[in-house]
Design a protein around this nucleic acid. Sequence first.
DNA 1: AGCTATATGTAGTGCGGCTACACATCGAGC
DNA 2: GCTCGATGTGTAGCCGCACTACATATAGCT
Lengths: 112, 112
Amino acid sequence: MKPDALRGHLDALLLATLDGRELHGYAIIEALQQGSGGALDLPTGTVYPALRRLERAGHVVSDWSTVGGRKRRTYKLTQTGQKALHAERTAWQEFTTVIDGVLGGDGKWAQT
Amino acid sequence: MKPDALRGHLDALLLATLDGRELHGYAIIEALQQGSGGALDLPTGTVYPALRRLERAGHVVSDWSTVGGRKRRTYKLTQTGQKALHAERTAWQEFTTVIDGVLGGDGKWAQT
DNA sequence: AGCTATATGTAGTGCGGCTACACATCGAGC
DNA sequence: GCTCGATGTGTAGCCGCACTACATATAGCT
């Protein structure tokens, strides 16, 4: 999948990944890899700034901890983040419905 | 729907709109409006440059005609365009499958 | 000592859709 | 005959945002 396709949907992915659990950035990347069956391999330069944006927006909060001598910044959703996630899910469904309709349902070829 | 969500999928929409018919730019915009139930209202500044890109890429060819004194540039798919459309449809399905999986299928949120 | 995995972060680039504007013709209304 | 809106095409410049590439640091293995 071409990487740029994520444009505009990254926040949704990150929020969804943090839904119901606390993860640090590195773990988020791995969770997305696994959750997507390896299709998503986001570079740190994409994820970390995005997380900071989400934090600035109040959608997540972060906590520093030290595990095995390495510092971790653990993120979790706020309530606004929960709402934002819900909104993103809705928007995503609308979006796919619209595009699916155009890509497949013009009526020309599916004349049935 | 936020406008930027289209990023990376505009070509697919345009190609799909031209699939099986010839349309000029203005008509493409209207076709997309109708085909999306009004959800898509692409500005000309988005569509025309995109069409030129597609033409430069060899995915469409254009023909000038004059209807009622007004000049129209009518576009239609080439064979490469057909292939590109097919590829775009495939990519779109992969894309939605991946995102759907992350957004909905974590298993965590279904606990409540 | 060097390499990899873990872990976070910044700087700069570049694509591409958007806003805003410009131009042209026709029909309708005044 | 002038303006205004609909039709129709097009360009210039902006800006968001993901990307590439790099910088930094520790732990553990060899």
